[in-house]
Design a protein around this nucleic acid. Structure first.
Lengths: 224, 224
DNA sequence: CGGTTATTTGGTCTATTGACCAGTTTTGCA
DNA sequence: TGCAAAACTGGTCAATAGACCAAATAACCG
C-alpha cells in the first residue's frame, strides 16, 4: 500500500483530479475503460476482493496497461471514487432543476438521491466502500473529505437560490440544512444496504423530507 | 474467500454466535485475545490491509493458533463485528438507564451513541468497514442485517417503556422512531469520519435530537 | 511518408498471503 | 497421579498479489 502522491492533485475541483493532463484520445478512452472496469469489478467483489487482474479483465485490457495509466492500484480506485462523486453531483443538479421553492427543492433533492440509490444498490455500496478505503489509504483521506464536502456543496448550491436573502446567517443555515439532509439520506441508505426493507426505507425518506422541510421553516429559510 | 458456514450460527441472539460451545477457559481467553488483536489490527490497517499474521502478532499468539480457533479469516472478522455490536448495544442500555420520559430518553440515547463514537473514531470506522465486509462476504450478509436489526431493536427496547399504551400502532410508531434515530446518527457519524468537524457534528446531533423529539410528538408518543 | 513518441503487450519476478499439519505441550478429568 | 483430549507451536506450501520491463505496435506530426 504505497502512499498516494499528492503532486498530481493540485488541480482544484472534483472530477479533474487524477486525470493526466497530456493524453491522446485513445489514452483517455483506455483510462475511462479502466475506471469503468474497476467499477464493474468492485460491484462484483468489493474493495477487499478486487485485484488488478480482475480490473484489467473487466476493462478488456492487458494488466501492464493498467500500470501504464495508473501509478498503482490505489490511484485507480481513488479515480473511481472521484468519478462516482462527480456523477452523483450531476444527477442531483439535474434532479432538482426547475424547482419553484425550497420546499419542493428539498423534496426533489432527497428523492433524487434516493432514486439514484434504488436504481443501483451495488454502486452505492461501492461508493461507501471506496470512501472508507480512501480514509484508510495513507495520504488519501483528503479525498474522502473533499468528496463529502463537494457533495454537501452540491446540495448547498441547489438550495441556496431558493433561500430568502444573501446574508451570512442565511448562508450558514442553508449549510446546516444541507449537512442534515446529507446525513439523513446517508443513514437511510446505509440502513437499506445492511438490512434491506424497501417499504420501510421509502417511508423513512418521506419522513426525512417532512423533517427537513420543517427544519428549513424553523431556520427561517421558508416564509410561513 | 471461502463461504461462511451457517451451521455454527444457529444460536439465537447476538454475541453468542461464532462462539464455540465446548471450550476451556484458556481457549476462551485465547479466542478473546484473538478478537481483541484483530480489532487492534483493524484499527491500524483497516479491513483491506489486515492479514492473519498481523492479527496473530497483535494477539500475541502463533499464526497456527488463529486457525485452530477460527475456521478462516472471515469467521474471525465476523466475530469482531459481533463483539462490537454487542458492546455498543450494552453501552446504549447503560446510557439511557434512569430516563424519566421519552423526551429525555431520546436525548440520552443519541448522546450515548454520539459519545461512544467521539471516544474512539477508529473503532467506529472499523465497525462500518466490517458491516460492509459482511455484506460482501458470501453467506454472511445476514450478519450485517442482524447486527443492524439488533441495534435498532436496542433503541426500540429502550424507547418502548416510555411510550403510552401497548397497542399495535404505538409499537409501529416506536419502531419508526428507532429507525430514524439510527439513520440520523449513522449519517452524522459517517459525515464526521469522512470530513471531520467536531463542532458541526455536535450541532448536528443537537438538531437531530430536537427533530426526533418533534417526530415522537407528532407520532403521538409524547403527550402534549 | 518517415521518424519519433505514446501506448500496449505479454511475460516475469518477488513478496506476501491464507491455509495447513506433524509434532509438542498443556489441561482437565478419572 | 496418569493419561487422553484439547490447545498450541513453528515451520512449510501453493496460490496469488502488485509491480515491473523489454519488445512490439499504434498514433501523431512535420
Amino acid at each position: 500500500m504505497k502512499e498516494v502522491r499528492l503532486a498530481e492533485a493540485i488541480e482544484g475541483t472534483s472530477g479533474a483530479v487524477l486525470t493526466a493532463p497530456r493524453a491522446s484520445r485513445k489514452a483517455r478512452e483506455t483510462r475511462e475503460k479502466l475506471i469503468e472496469g474497476a467499477l464493474l469489478a468492485l460491484c462484483e467483489d468489493g474493495v477487499t476482493g478486487i485485484t488488478t487482474r480482475k480490473i484489467a479483465e473487466r476493462a478488456g485490457v492487458q494488466l501492464g496497461t493498467l500500470h501504464y495509466h495508473f501509478e498503482n492500484k490505489d490511484m485507480l480506485l481513488l479515480a473511481v471514487l472521484d468519478m462516482l462523486g462527480a456523477r452523483l453531483a450531476r444527477t442531483l443538479r439535474l434532479g432538482v432543476a426547475g424547482s419553484r421553492n425550497l420546499d419542493e427543492c428539498i423534496q426533489r433533492a432527497l428523492l433524487t438521491d434516493w432514486n439514484a440509490t434504488e436504481e443501483n444498490f451495488a454502486i452505492q455500496l461501492v461508493q461507501y466502500e471506496l470512501t472508507l478505503y480512501a480514509l484508510r489509504t495513507k495520504g488519501a483521506a483528503w479525498m474522502a473529505q473533499r468528496q463529502y464536502n463537494d457533495y454537501i456543496k452540491a446540495h448547498n448550491d441547489v438550495f441556496a437560490p431558493h433561500a430568502p436573502g444573501n446574508d451570512q446567517t442565511t448562508a450558514e443555515n442553508v449549510q446546516r440544512l444541507s449537512q442534515l439532509v446529507m446525513a439523513g439520506i446517508d443513514g437511510i441508505i446505509l440502513q437499506e444496504l445492511a438490512a434491506p426493507d424497501l417499504a420501510r426505507s421509502r417511508s423513512a425518506v418521506r419522513a426525512l423530507i417532512s423533517a427537513m422541510q420543517a427544519l428549513a421553516r424553523s431556520l427561517g429559510l421558508i416564509p410561513a
